[in-house]
Simulated assay, not measured.
Amino acid sequence: MDLPVTPPVDPMLAKAVTTVPDDPGVWSYEPKWDGFRALVFRDGDEVVLQSRNGKDLGRYFPELIEALRDELAPRAVVDGEIVVPREIDGRTRLDWDSLSQRIHPAASRVKLLAEQTPAHFIGFDALAAGDTSLMDAPFRDRRRALGELIHQQGWCHVTRTTEDPELGAHWLTTFEGAGLDGVIAKRLDGAYLPGKREMVKIKHRRDADCVAIGYRIHKSGEGVGSILLGLYRDDGELQMVGGAASFTAKARLQLLAELEPLRKAEDLVYDGEPSRWNSAADKRWIPIRPEKVAEVAYDQMEGNTDAWQRFRHTVKFLRWRPDRDPRSCTFDQLDVPVHYDLYDVLEAT
């Protein structure tokens, strides 16, 4: 591969802030896509799709490799996100569950999923064009080059951007309904700095009261590693929606003392779904009586409201809520994002 920038390259990262920076003329704002980060290297027919941690994603997305050959300039390096859109409740939005299932060891399964849930590529930065490296160029120039490198937009897209901080803040709330994850801000005069947190990200943060329905023992064997959480559906069934983790050693032991007396049976242990990312992880969990309510911080939900919902990421445990009746912990309390179609987000790029 004869390019001015060759793999592997550590992608430039973002640090979290709580508000959209309000500095007109300093920042460029864009939606934060909720998918797999990927750097694309194309030299003629040779295309490398590199993950955030340097692994080759090409074998999992053969349809995207073909699309990049058709829609990306013959010699280019671009940074972006792999996403899977899906129609949900009459609108097209990003579907994380379908995307995560694309990482599968069986070639036959990969082929089937490529047909059933084809991926798109959302480009948001340019690292090289032809024989020219753009790493040291300001973002405003890299952005201009990006629009020239992705010359068709069927399966490959150029993300929408604005230099208006008010519009950027508006996107933080409106675009979530299309399955997006927040807003990214980049300095207009900033270079591309691999591995450095030179961008800023503003993500959705919310609180919810959930029923503690079980726990897993920490991998050390001491204390609670995670608390499994549930919410009551309209039909009165308690549905698992995710888990809270990342406790200190002291908190793990304290949580075990609080939750162990609630075990449904001394020897009752459930098998959890195996982790796609860590097959060696022990997913067994211990069910408890649904008597305690936990207040947690979360960013967003995923799933179809008519079938199931769950937390998109592991949530943060805030505190116990002894004042809350577990039966009052329903889906109604959750903040429902504005309905937005994915292709409305991709407009005017």
Rank of each mutant, 00 (worst) to 15 (best):
Y232A: 06
V269I: 10
D341E: 03
A281H: 11
V315L: 08
E163R: 00
A14F: 09
L256P: 12
L68R: 12
Y343W: 13
E291F: 04
K316E: 14
K15P: 07
V47A: 07
A294E: 11
A106Y: 06
K283F: 07
F121W: 11
T19A: 13
G223V: 11
R233N: 15
D267H: 14
R75W: 12
T159D: 07
I82Q: 08
R312G: 12
R91E: 15
G182P: 02
Q333R: 02
M301T: 11
R216P: 04
V48H: 14
K196W: 12
D207H: 15
D164K: 00
L318N: 02
I202S: 09
S133D: 12
V158F: 06
A38P: 12
Q333A: 12
L146M: 08
E260D: 14
V211Q: 03
P21N: 11
T117C: 04
L112Y: 13
K283S: 15
D335N: 06
D56A: 05
H157D: 05
E266R: 12
D89I: 00
V211P: 13
W277F: 14
L255D: 08
Q101K: 15
K186N: 00
L238P: 03
R140L: 06
S279A: 15
A16T: 11
R52E: 15
G236F: 02
P165I: 00
E273Y: 04
D341S: 08
G130D: 11
M12R: 00
V40M: 06
V17I: 11
L94W: 04
A185I: 01
K316Y: 10
G123N: 03
L268S: 03
Y215V: 09
E237I: 00
R42Y: 11
L149I: 13
A212L: 13
V47T: 15
W155V: 10
D136L: 07
Q254N: 07
E30N: 11
P274E: 09
G154P: 01
V336I: 14
G223Q: 04
G195D: 09
R312C: 07
W308R: 09
I184A: 08
W308L: 02
G80I: 12
G154Y: 04
R187L: 01
V183K: 05
Y215S: 05
V336T: 10
R142I: 05
D79W: 06
V338C: 02
V183G: 09
C329P: 00
L39N: 14
G90Y: 03
I286E: 05
M12V: 14
T19E: 14
L113F: 13
L231I: 04
I227W: 09
P105D: 06
D335E: 05
D141C: 02
H218M: 02
A67W: 05
Y215F: 13
V158K: 05
E176D: 03
V293Y: 07
C156L: 05
G54F: 13
F139C: 00
S246K: 08
L193V: 15
F317G: 03
R276K: 04
L259A: 00
L229T: 01
R327Q: 14
Q239C: 04
F121G: 09
F41K: 01
G154W: 01
P165V: 02
W27L: 00
D181S: 14
